[in-house]
């Protein structure tokens, strides 16, 4: 729908330019942002790669030629070949299938963790920023203490306490990640609540809930969306890093980071085992940063780079 709208508006701009009129079709933030985004080649490239991995993640069970945990010792340690495109693991598992299912884990963690972060960070930040006072004071003291802790250190600590597994990764990233979003939302709300339109809303008797939901939140949303976009690769990185040192996802569930960590010892003889998952992590992270940079520039053109 958005793409259709943008195509239409480009066309009409062209027509009016031809007629010598400098009129612009009615637009809004999202159409504008979309047009800026698709003009950014790197961002489009990033988006294509991200969509590709998302596609792999969603249809992993259809695309993967073998189940990720199927072991076949007769075929162990095979170099990439026609049957096994990316070779086989020491247990004779098809690396291609494991890589595809690995995309599922990465995307799940990336998106899922940010959903949790959003629903913890935004409400807390909104309450702190809107009401201020004691709640704000205590919450921000707590946030400061959390900031003093190196995030990765804290995540490792939580993971080793909870044990490995996908749910625990969600919990660990959620528990640490909300801090940034909370602070950001609070800052936005603090400055927005003094604006005239909020005073006006209050003057006509709008309840706090409506002021927060209908007036403050939509205006605070842009920086939050940008932060969330950068949070996705961060979460993917965290999962990969945790699994790499062995406190994230445990085999046989295939995680790229876990594969890099486990197969690193075979690097000299079976280079493809650790290299392909490492490249998959690298590609995903790069694609998300291109997309994130593009989104930031598109949504907030005034923001300095």
């Amino acid at each position: 729908m958005t793409s259709a709208a943008s195509a239409k508006s480009t066309k009409s701009t062209a027509v009016s330019a031809a007629a010598g009129l400098k009129m612009r079709k009615e637009t809004n933030l999202w159409i504008d942002a979309w047009q800026r985004l698709i003009r950014n080649k790197l961002a489009v490239l990033g988006a294509i790669v991200v969509l590709f991995f998302l596609f792999l993640a969603i249809f992993a069970n259809v695309i993967a030629p073998y189940p990720y945990d199927l072991t076949n010792f007769a075929d162990a340690y095979q170099s990439p070949n026609a049957t096994y495109w990316f070779g086989t693991s020491p247990l004779g598992q098809d690396m291609f299938s494991r890589l595809i299912y690995g995309a599922r884990i990465s995307m799940l963690v990336g998106v899922g963790a940010q959903v949790i972060v959003f629903f913890i960070g935004v409400p807390l930040g909104a309450v702190a920023g809107y009401y201020g006072g004691k709640v704000d004071l205590y919450l921000m003291r707590f946030v400061d203490v959390m900031y003093a802790f190196p995030t990765l250190l804290f995540v490792i600590l939580i993971m080793s306490a909870l044990g490995t597994g996908l749910t625990n990764i969600f919990i660990a990233i959620g528990l640490t990640g909300w801090v940034t979003i909370c602070r950001l939302t609070r800052g936005q709300f603090l400055s927005l609540r003094e604006k005239e339109f909020v005073t006006a809303a209050r003057a006509v008797g709008a309840p706090s809930r409506r002021i927060i939901m209908a007036h403050l939140l939509p205006n605070a949303l842009t920086p939050i969306i940008i932060a969330i976009t950068f949070g996705v690769p961060n979460a993917i990185f965290t999962e990969a890093a945790l699994s790499f040192i062995g406190v994230g996802i445990s085999p046989p569930v295939p995680s790229w980071g876990q594969m890099v960590g486990e197969y690193q010892q075979y690097l000299r003889s079976y280079w493809y085992l650790a290299t392909f998952p490492a490249i998959a992590i690298g590609l995903t992270m790069l694609a998300f940063s291109f997309l994130g940079d593009g989104l930031r520039d598109a949504l907030d053109p005034q923001m300095k780079r």
Binding site: P233, V260, L267, T275, G282, L286, S289
Partner: peptide
Amino acid sequence: ATLGVSLPNFVIGILFLLLFSI
């Protein structure tokens, strides 16, 4: 800058090992 910011250091490490030492 883009590479360095986006690639996790253990990924860089693996690729370096493969390229420069193996």
